[in-house]
Simulated assay, not measured.
Amino acid sequence: MGGVDILHVDDDKGLTSLTADLLERKDSRFSVKTAASATEGLQLLDDFSPDCIVSDFEMPGTDGLEFLQAVRAEHSKLPFILFTGRGSEEIASDAISAGATDYLQKQSGTDQYELLANRIDNAVTRYHSEKQLRETKEEYAAVFENARNGLLLVDVEQDGFRFRRCNSRVSEFTGLAESELIGKTPREALGDENARAVAGAYRKCVAMRETISYTVTLTHPVGDVVHEVNTTPITRDGEVEQLVVAFTDITERYAREQKLREERVVIQQALDTLDEPLFVTDTHGSLKHCNRRALEVTGHTEQTAVGTSITDLFPDDERETMTDAIDDALRTGRTTVTASLRLDSGQRRPYEFRVHSLTDLDNNIAGLVILGHDALDT
Rank of each mutant, 00 (worst) to 15 (best):
D46C: 04
D47R: 14
F48A: 05
F48C: 09
P50Q: 06
P50Y: 00
D51S: 11
D51E: 10
D51N: 14
C52T: 12
I53Y: 01
I53M: 04
V54A: 08
V54G: 07
D56S: 05
E58F: 07
M59Y: 08
M59N: 08
P60V: 01
P60S: 09
D63M: 05
G64S: 10
G64H: 09
L65V: 06
F67A: 04
F67K: 04
L68I: 10
L68A: 09
Q69T: 14
A70R: 15
A70H: 12
E74H: 13
H75A: 00
H75N: 12
S76N: 08
S76K: 14
L78H: 11
P79R: 11
P79W: 05
F83A: 07
F83E: 04
T84S: 03
R86N: 11
E90M: 07
I91K: 06
A92V: 07
A92F: 06
S93W: 02
S93F: 11
A95H: 01
A95L: 02
I96A: 05
I96Q: 01
I96F: 08
A100C: 02
T101E: 11
Y103D: 06
L104Y: 08
K106V: 02
K106G: 00
Q107M: 12
Q107C: 07
S108K: 11
S108Q: 13
T110H: 12
D111Y: 08
Q112S: 11
Q112M: 13
Y113M: 03
Y113C: 06
E114R: 11
E114A: 13
L115I: 15
L116P: 03
A117W: 02
I120L: 02
N122T: 13
A123P: 03
V124E: 06
T125N: 11
Y127Q: 09
Y127N: 09
H128W: 12
S129R: 15
E130K: 07
E130S: 09
E130D: 15
K131V: 04
K131M: 13
L133A: 11
E135G: 03
E135R: 14
T136M: 12
T136E: 13
E138S: 10
E139K: 15
E139I: 09
A141F: 07
V143P: 04
F144A: 00
F144V: 02
E145L: 00
N146V: 00
A147L: 09
N149G: 03
N149A: 13
G150T: 07
G150L: 08
L151E: 03
L151F: 14
L152H: 07
Q158S: 14
Q158N: 13
D159H: 10
G160A: 10
F161D: 10
F163S: 08
R164K: 14
R165D: 14
R165C: 01
C166N: 11
C166I: 13
N167W: 01
N167P: 00
S168D: 11
S168W: 04
R169A: 15
V170S: 03
V170I: 12
S171V: 05
E172M: 10
E172T: 15
G175A: 01
A177M: 09
E178K: 14
S179G: 06
S179Q: 13
S179T: 12
L181A: 08
L181V: 01
G183E: 01
G183S: 06
K184W: 04
K184P: 02
K184Y: 03
K184N: 11
K184H: 10
